[in-house]
Amino acid sequence: MNAFSPPGYAARKRVNEIIMGLCVAATALGLVWLFLILVTLLWNGISGVSLAVFTEMTPPPNAHGGGLLNAIVGSLIMTAIGIAIGGPIGLFAGTYMAEYGRHEKLTTVIRFINDILLSAPSIIIGLFIYGAVVVPMHGFSGIAGALALAVIVIPVVVRTTENMLLLVPQQLREAAAGLGVPRSKVIRDVAYRAAKTGLITGGLLAVARISGETAPLLFTALSNQFWSIDLTKEMANLPVTINNFINNPDPNWKRLAWAGALIITFAVLALNIAARSLSSRNASK
């Protein structure tokens, strides 16, 4: 047996075992964090989740009961507008990069800038919208919050649109073009259709990305204690409401904040998992 083991082999083997052990430990650590965070959320949040959370308004301080209805509705409105504005812009920009300008220098530049915007600090987006929308409009507003979210949506959608359209086989486009179909129609009826699942995945990821965003809403939409769907006024939203309630000693507010945190996290994780399973189903096809 010994003849097969070169000198120093035992030591090398031991080093290998130690480091591989550390790799296993690192993975365990990563999974433990996820598990701990989810357990903390369930532990603190589950008792606060009730029907009232979805049907009643945010309560004043030191009251009993109440819910998060205005915050949930405000978040839904701003997310919807953010996607409605940012989604098409991102889709068209990605379309240009993949379909018209595939070999242009401009596309390389835009892709580079877009990738930077994709990871840019979201609080900076908040400052940008504050300067560009809140100051000229003389006040915090729901539309400012929605625009901040739209700015976050655009790079996410641009990225997935371009990637997905690049995967569409060139022959499909050539076949359609050979029949005399105009280019814009080829893109809309052939390329988009072939890339449909991927494009939907991108949209889902964008929704997931913005539904938990707090920083860009802090000084754009602010928040609102009351029911308001007026887009030109401060608008209640779930993340900022959680932020305000959790930092308050009032136990009722704390309870609602944990309930809101639980709702938001599971909604975001569900969206992420849905997007993932959609794209992996597409890949295996």
Binding site: T27, G30, L31, W33, L34, I37, L41, A208, S211, G212, E213, T214, A215, P239, I242, N243, A261, I264, T265, V268, L269, N272, I273, R276
Partner: peptide
């Protein structure tokens, strides 16, 4: 996937 889900959790939750 589980590790990547860590990236999906909103930062306020962290």
């Amino acid at each position: 996937t589980a590790v990547e889900l860590l990236a999906g959790i909103p930062s306020i939750i962290y």
